[in-house]
Amino acid sequence: MSDLPLSTKRKLGLVIDLDTCVGCHACVVACKGWNTENYGAPLSDIGAYGQAPAGTFLNRVHSYEISPPDAPTQTVHFPKSCLHCENAPCVTVCPTGASYKRSEDGIVLVDESACIGCGLCAWACPYGARELDAAEGVMKKCTLCVDRIYNENLPEIDRVPACVRTCPAGARHFGDLGDPDSDVSKLVAERGGMDLMPELDAAPTNKYLPPRPRDAAETSAAPVLEPVAAEAGGLLGWIDRALAAMPGA
């Protein structure tokens, strides 16, 4: 159902640390593996071994360059999946109610049995988080691993999204962003977590932690070492004195 809940009990989402993400695509493939086998239809790959393979993925890692005016260019690896927006435009446009936002935890899902595959929700999403599966004709998107995070067949420690579990660098965090005391909320507060395209008012739940300042030495006057060689006896004299001053000598 396409109307958004007035509020959700929790705001589950991801916090992605751009300071730490090395762009390894592990989260991309773990997501593909889990979601091919689980929630809804498999994520198909059209022309899998051909000239223009085009598969459905729910998570993708972009790479950008930032050129600051006074320091070397930086590279930022940038994973992106559904941001589980509070004000999800993808939901309200859906004519069938297949797209909906759960009032319980804020997860935005597609009920594949109701989806006509019109694609409008993907058009409405600013973030490119929805891909229409070409084989199945239904809309696919990140489920926040709703079939993992509550899954009683999984050990408790594994009840996190597949992408979070697999991220080798620990750049992905999962939790309740509606709870100011949750680890993720604290992280967002500490590190200045940000929204993507805030001006479009989708009010994304997922937050991005910006890279820490880079190349400080290029712009600041870091200290350099003072020579001892100028002292009497040069380096070797200094060494003898230094060793003599050491305990045990």
């Binding site: 159902m1 109307d3 809940p5 689980n38 709703v146 509550y150």
Partner: peptide, 25 residues
């Protein structure tokens, strides 16, 4: 949220039930 949206959201139809504990393997 405007009052109209509020009204809408109060009269939402029920959300689909999702199988949250599928057998993994």
């Amino acid at each position: 949220m405007n009052p109209f949206a509020k009204l809408l959201s109060l009269t939402r139809s029920p959300e689909p039930v999702v199988e949250t504990s599928p057998r993994v393997s």
